[in-house]
């Protein structure tokens, strides 16, 4: 299993723990993630204005590059995944946009690459059953609230990632690690995304509601695949918010990458200590 890997800007900076835990886990599982040599930032948000395609240039270039290497493109940041996948759909469906981008970037890419989220690789290419067998330190008893947020699921017609109103991939993943998924109603509600930089004092309300809901249903921690969601939830100081790859690394015994939790506002170690060795 070999893939082109698109880390995105955050996984090299504020979410180093996300990238490191993902790469260590993938190595352990025999999934080869080869970082695209010439990747650029995807732009972080998919452009919604229909009269200007400039912001599609960068993701188009990335897609084209992966395609020319003959590999599926894997990413694990929800934001990158959303932008790359939507751009790919747009290019495949809209010959006008495809033509413009193709002329501008000077490659004739037509949207044929496969854009995969690491969770999809684990589910379909590896299989959650196989993953379960590779788990050496099952997280038995740990109640994990999966947080999907928006970018993995919406708009459903473009993302085709999971059932947008009732997704299950995170839950199946959590079960494969031996932990218990918490079914709470806010798992698909938006955390407020980039509105947090507006400094509106009430922009944190949606994140607080998600944390309250997860807490009410007995979650020990939240897992997510989006650095922005992670920040918005973690910064409220209510409960540990982890990347799904951190739990994965823990369950696979890749403890060396988990020594550094300095990027977290809420230190997850006290919660994890009760359920996993080596933290």
């Amino acid at each position: 299993m070999r893939y082109s890997y698109f880390p995105g800007c955050t996984l090299h900076t504020q979410a180093k723990n996300f990238g490191a835990s993902a790469l260590a886990s993938a190595r352990e599982l025999g999934i080869e993630l080869v970082e695209l040599p010439d990747w650029q930032c995807c732009g972080a948000v998919y452009p919604l204005a229909s009269d200007n395609h400039m912001a599609l240039v960068s993701p188009y270039r990335t897609l084209s590059s992966a395609h020319s290497r003959g590999e599926d493109l894997v990413t694990m940041c929800s934001g990158c995944y959303n932008v790359l996948k939507r751009t790919n759909v747009r290019v495949a469906k809209d010959p006008d946009v495809q033509g413009k981008l193709s002329a501008f970037v000077e490659t004739d890419y037509r949207g044929d690459a496969r854009v995969l989220h690491l969770l999809e690789v684990l589910k379909t290419d590896l299989g959650f059953e196989a993953l379960k067998e590779r788990v050496t330190r099952p997280l038995t008893g740990l109640s994990v609230a999966p947080y999907y947020g928006c970018l993995l699921l919406r708009p459903p017609e473009d993302m085709q990632f999971d059932d947008a109103e009732s997704p299950s991939i995170f839950e199946d993943f959590i079960r494969a690690l031996g932990a218990t998924p918490v079914d709470y109603p806010y798992r698909t509600e938006c955390c407020g995304a980039y509105v947090s930089i507006s400094e509106d004092e009430r922009s944190g309300e949606p994140a607080r509601a998600i944390l309250r809901s997860a807490g009410r249903y007995g979650a020990h921690c939240i897992v997510t695949s989006c650095p922005l969601c992670q920040y918005n939830l973690d910064v409220k100081g209510q409960m540990p918010v982890l990347y799904f790859t951190q739990l994965l690394a823990l369950a696979l015994g890749c403890t060396e990458v988990l020594q550094d939790f300095s990027l977290h506002h809420v230190d997850p170690r006290p919660v994890l200590a009760g359920f996993a060795n080596g933290v």
């Binding site: 732009g43 972080a44 948000v45 980039y194 947090s196 930089i197 650095p227 922005l228």
Partner: peptide
């Protein structure tokens, strides 16, 4: 403190 994703995304929107 903010992730790059928030800064890039937010500044694109704002």
């Amino acid at each position: 403190a903010m992730p790059q994703q928030a800064l890039v995304g937010g500044l694109r929107k704002y």
